[in-house]
């Protein structure tokens, strides 16, 4: 049976992890490949790098850390942020990533989703949808509105209609973040997740709001998520990947448990 995935997300700028972590046994806790390998050993099912490097000249650094990660963490790697063209995506995949996540650029140029999927296959194209709750309107009938540029800019697009559109264009997976919940620790927006996961057949990754294992369970059970992504609770060592997965397993959800994955951090 297909396992529900638990995915740590690392924010990366200029080749360094931006938010600090509390792994005590890392030589360099700012080095993304070292952190990725640590999470892989702990049972992460996949790693997401979100590149928030502002300057385009930082791209070479990103490709370098992608390659170093592919050489030491033998689990799937998704890279989001800064991919603006088919050639950008090719470079990231050739460096060793398995998937690329498109967000703001897909809203600006939806056909980019189609071009990337045509070239590399839908399985390599994740579309990240950041959404917030708004009063239902003609433009946003579901009351879930797409926002871009890190959640700062609303675009008057209904998140459900956008989800359906990008899947038609070739997205193989959706990464759905509740901007209302992101960083709040108040739990995932399971209603928003359910609305989107019920609409599409591609896998949906839940993001934004995790405080503990019960939120991961709710994202899957109530939100219909296939995978659950979190950042802060793992980096701050509030919970380990293994603890979250053990709780999910105890709740009857299918997860991949590593024989050595319960080791203490």
């Amino acid at each position: 049976m297909l396992r529900r995935r638990v995915i740590p997300c690392l924010d990366v700028a200029n080749g360094r992890v931006v938010k600090g972590t509390r792994f005590v046994d890392l030589r360099d806790e700012g080095d993304p490949p070292e952190l990725a390998e640590r999470y892989a050993r702990e049972g992460a099912d996949e790693i997401v790098y979100l590149d928030i490097t502002a300057a385009p000249e930082g791209r070479g650094t990103l490709l370098d850390i992608v390659e170093r990660t592919a050489r030491r963490a033998f689990i799937p790697l998704t890279v989001g942020g800064g991919v603006r063209s088919v050639d950008d995506m090719r470079d990231v995949l050739r460096a060793g990533a398995d998937k690329v996540s498109l967000n703001t650029r897909a809203v600006e140029d939806p056909d980019l989703v189609r071009r990337c999927a045509a070239r590399f296959g839908s399985q390599a194209v994740v579309v990240a949808i950041d959404a917030r709750r708004v009063p239902a309107s003609e433009a946003v009938p579901s009351g879930f509105e797409v926002v871009v540029r890190g959640g700062r800019e609303p675009v008057g697009l209904d998140a459900l209609a956008w989800a359906r559109r990008v899947v038609e264009l070739g997205a193989g997976e959706l990464l759905v973040t509740s901007i209302d919940r992101d960083g709040t620790g108040s739990g995932f927006d399971t209603e928003q997740l359910r609305a989107i996961s019920g609409l599409v057949t591609v896998p949906v990754i839940a993001s934004g709001g995790a405080a503990g294992p019960k939120d991961f369970i709710a994202a899957v059970r109530d939100g219909g998520a296939d995978a659950v992504l979190a950042a802060g609770i793992f980096h701050r060592r509030e919970w380990t990947i293994a603890e979250v997965k053990a709780a999910m397993a105890a709740a009857g959800l299918p997860v991949r448990i590593l024989p050595g994955g319960t080791e203490a951090a």
Binding site: M1, L2, D45, S122, G172, V202, P203
Partner: peptide, 11 residues
């Protein structure tokens, strides 16, 4: 399949 692509870890 209930979801496609089939993405993730499976037995």
């Amino acid at each position: 399949a209930p979801t496609l692509p089939h993405i993730g870890w499976n037995q």
